[in-house]
Amino acid sequence: MDKVIQDKYAKTFHASLMMKFNNNLITVRLSEGKEKSTWDFTPGDDWLVVKAGTIPNGMEFRYVSHTEDRLHYHIHLSGQPDKKLGVSRNGYLGFYRIAEVTDYWEIEPLYLDRDRLFCHLRDQSGNKVKVMNYAPSYWGYDHPPAPLNVKEGEVATFALDLSC
């Protein structure tokens, strides 16, 4: 792993998560049960979604360990240490308060650009996080929130933004 990346990210830090799409960065944030959805069910709060033009949620990446090509973290909501990122039985990413989440998340660094780490996010089994129900040629402000999933969708590239 690149020494600069290891020195900067092989520790606990706070960041927002953005998804790269057509050379733009789109916000990754929590779902709200009241909003229009493209899901196959009505989502409640605290699922991770992608939605253009919204404010990202800050997250705490608690460092666990690293390998030659991965950084391992438990991911919590900033200011809410009791909410931890996990995966539902259907593969959706969400923050859990009551259910115990023991698995860590893997960051696969791709490159650094403007103090952002571009990466793939993987679950502990190595499955890449994907975005569901997106329009490949367009993603505007009126596009409904799209869920993140480890089982289906299009593989997403993310940016960790430390300026949150």
Rank of each mutant, 00 (worst) to 15 (best):
V64N: 10
Y73P: 06
N24Y: 08
V129P: 04
D142W: 07
Y63Q: 06
G94Q: 06
A52W: 07
V131I: 15
H120Q: 12
G33Q: 13
Q124K: 11
N149F: 05
V4S: 13
G58K: 15
K34R: 09
W47Q: 12
A99E: 06
V64K: 14
V28D: 00
L110H: 03
D69H: 12
L110D: 10
R116P: 05
R29C: 15
A99P: 00
F61N: 00
G86E: 08
L117V: 08
K83H: 11
W105Y: 08
I98P: 00
K34V: 08
V129C: 10
V101W: 08
A52Q: 14
V87D: 05
A135K: 10
A146V: 02
N22A: 06
Y96T: 01
L17M: 09
T42R: 14
P136H: 11
R114H: 12
V87A: 04
H74V: 00
P81G: 13
D82G: 03
K83D: 03
P144C: 01
S163H: 11
N127G: 01
R116W: 01
G44I: 07
D40F: 09
L48F: 07
P56Y: 00
L93G: 02
L121T: 01
S37F: 01
T38V: 10
Q124P: 00
N127C: 09
L112P: 02
K8E: 11
F158G: 01
H76C: 02
Q124R: 08
L160K: 04
N149V: 09
A10S: 12
P144V: 09
E35C: 02
F13W: 03
F21L: 09
W105S: 12
N23T: 01
P109C: 07
P147C: 07
V50P: 08
P56G: 05
T38G: 12
W47H: 15
R97T: 11
H66E: 14
K36M: 04
T67H: 10
W139N: 13
T27M: 05
G44P: 04
D103E: 15
V64A: 13
Q124N: 13
V64R: 14
S125V: 04
V155K: 09
E68H: 07
K3I: 04
S125W: 03
K83R: 15
L77H: 02
I26Y: 07
S31M: 05
D7T: 07
M19S: 03
D103Y: 03
P43Y: 04
I26E: 12
D7R: 11
A52C: 11
A159I: 05
K51C: 09
I107M: 04
S78I: 01
Y134L: 11
Y141V: 06
G91W: 06
G44K: 10
W47P: 00
M132R: 14
Y104F: 13
Q80Y: 15
R116L: 13
N149R: 09
L112H: 03
K20V: 05
E106T: 01
E106A: 14
L85I: 05
L85M: 15
N57M: 03
Y141D: 13
K20R: 07
F61W: 10
W105T: 06
M19W: 03
N133E: 14
L48I: 10
Y111I: 00
Y92H: 12
K128M: 09
L162V: 07
N23V: 00
D40R: 11
M59V: 02
R29Q: 13
G126K: 00
L121Y: 02
M1Y: 07
P144Y: 00
P109H: 08
L71F: 11
F41N: 02
F158W: 02
R29M: 11
L121Q: 01
K151D: 12
V50S: 15
